[in-house]
């Protein structure tokens, strides 16, 4: 078995090395990937979407359909972990038993967390909102928001974090984030344009088309952030407690 694996790896390695000889040089401005589409995005995207950060406009507008499904992948992963771990009717021996006795609450840890969590959340909101102008956006902001909750659960315990953010709400918002994304796209369809053609919002909001694109992107980024936040937290509480939500790591 090990020899077969070695053989497969060797063949794959040779294939990849052979292919690597043929690839364009790192950062080559004349490589096909740099000349075919990039010029268009660099020259036109600000005119068309009024978003200076081209990464955001490609991700959330030109290829917004992909990004919607990326968000669905995250949602799907959350539900997958939930359905596998969190079964209410079952007889399950605790895998990690006996657990170490929890030492008493650590005041340094908890105070630090209490100071950090609001700052993290504020910064996360900035990252979401400022994705149009600088690196950032819904995925990054959502992860920071999610980790602020995980920090709370780590420094106190899962019960405390769940008390602040009930599991039912977590699940509600995780679907709600994707639904917000899809709804913004669907509205364009009902306004007589194609799915995710944010320009359709222009007449409704009384703004120009490029501005409508910018607003549409902000809307979907918020949807992404909500889903990522909820799924991050949901994954942590399910994995850390083996699906029982009683105690964490």
């Amino acid at each position: 078995m090990k020899k077969t694996a070695l053989l497969i790896i060797a063949v794959l390695g040779i294939l990849l090395l052979r292919a690597a000889e043929d690839l364009p040089f790192w950062g080559d401005p004349q490589s096909p990937a740099s000349v075919h589409l990039s010029d268009y995005y660099l020259e036109e995207s600000y005119e068309e979407t009024s978003v200076p950060n081209i990464v955001t406009s490609v991700l959330a507008d030109y290829r917004g359909y992909d990004t919607m499904f990326e968000t669905v992948v995250i949602f799907c992963a959350g539900i997958t972990v939930l359905i596998v771990l969190r079964r209410t009717h079952r007889r399950r021996a605790k895998v990690i038993s006996p657990r170490p006795e929890r030492p008493g609450a650590d005041i340094i840890l908890q105070t630090a967390a209490r100071l950090l969590v609001p700052m993290m959340q504020l910064f996360a909101l900035y990252v979401v909102a400022h994705g149009h102008h600088s690196p950032g956006g819904g995925f990054q902001g959502g992860v920071i928001l999610g980790s602020s909750l995980i920090l709370l659960a780590l420094s106190y315990d899962i019960q405390m974090a769940l008390h602040r953010f009930k599991e039912k709400l977590v699940l509600l918002f995780s679907a709600g984030g994707v639904l917000l994304y899809a709804a913004i796209g669907l509205a364009c369809l009902f306004l007589g344009r194609n799915f995710l053609a944010y320009g359709a919002w222009a007449a409704l909001l009384g703004i120009s088309e490029p501005e409508a694109h910018s607003h549409g992107m902000l809307g979907v980024e918020i949807g992404v952030a909500i889903t990522v936040l909820c799924i991050m937290f949901s994954l942590y509480i399910d994995l850390a407690s083996g699906g029982d939500l009683d105690e964490g790591l």
């Binding site: 075919h36 268009y40 995005y41 344009r193 995710l196």
Partner: peptide, 11 residues
């Protein structure tokens, strides 16, 4: 065309 973007710029 999704988002009314003609290919190859959109999907």
């Amino acid at each position: 065309y999704l988002g009314d973007w003609p290919p190859p710029y959109g999907i």
